[in-house]
Amino acid sequence: MLDHKALARYLIALADDELILGHRNSEWTGHAPILEEDIAFANLALDEIGHSRLWYELAADLLGEDRARFPDRQVFLRPAEEFRNLQLVELPRGDWAFSMLRQYLFDVFEQHRLAGLSESTQASLAEVAARIRTEEIYHLRHTRAWVTRLGLGTEESNRRMQAALDALWPYARGLGGALPGEAGLPAGVVPDSAALYEAWLAEVSAFLAEAGLTIQPGSPDLQSPISRADHSSDFAALIEEMQSVARLDPEATW
């Protein structure tokens, strides 16, 4: 018997990842290094936030909630401490190297996860995953092109990418942690996060090496990744900003 609440918790964590990553990416809109990236990176933000809505809606269905209202309530009226996104996605956007490399590391993991989810025994989940996957293919193509160019471009771009990798790596390890609810789900509903992590690690290690970037041997490869219940010091401010207008009048239709 499928535990609907466990699957909803899993999906809300996925949605939170997409939402918060999209939020950080959206901060670049109007400030990107070239006009073409004001367009492209905004599109990535749009897609991520759009995907978060799809996951929140699916969670609403599982919980018997109203799918028209549930996503906005989760995003705009939930306290910061109840969000279950990774710290990886909430870190301030940093420079272009940091934002682009974070997006790449996330996208590769997501491709593996979506491949697994699109074969889920839960049909509605498989269907949404397949739909999201078609868009994520373009994200990965875009971020791979950037990682290569910045990794191999100039001495400065390589140095910035290496610094971004060093800073992101301990947080990227969080991708491999089990999601909330995952342990309570029967086999075949969602892919095993630890197995996805192994596939992700092999792929990104090879690709980053080709781009002239080195995963530092001293990088912490934590046995127990940072919990999704723990947030960084910048997170409360992100949520406060995101919810500031909606909370002016929580009962209003915005």
Binding site: S26, T29, L46, I49, E241, W254
Partner: peptide, 28 residues
């Protein structure tokens, strides 16, 4: 663009990002 991070619903947020993105496209 300064309001993208504060848009008060997901629908408004998606519309606003798409709109600012269009402006970049028009500039292009």
């Amino acid at each position: 663009g300064a309001w993208i991070t504060r848009a008060p619903s997901l629908r408004r947020k998606l519309i606003l990002i798409a709109k600012v993105q269009d402006e970049a496209g028009h500039g292009q």
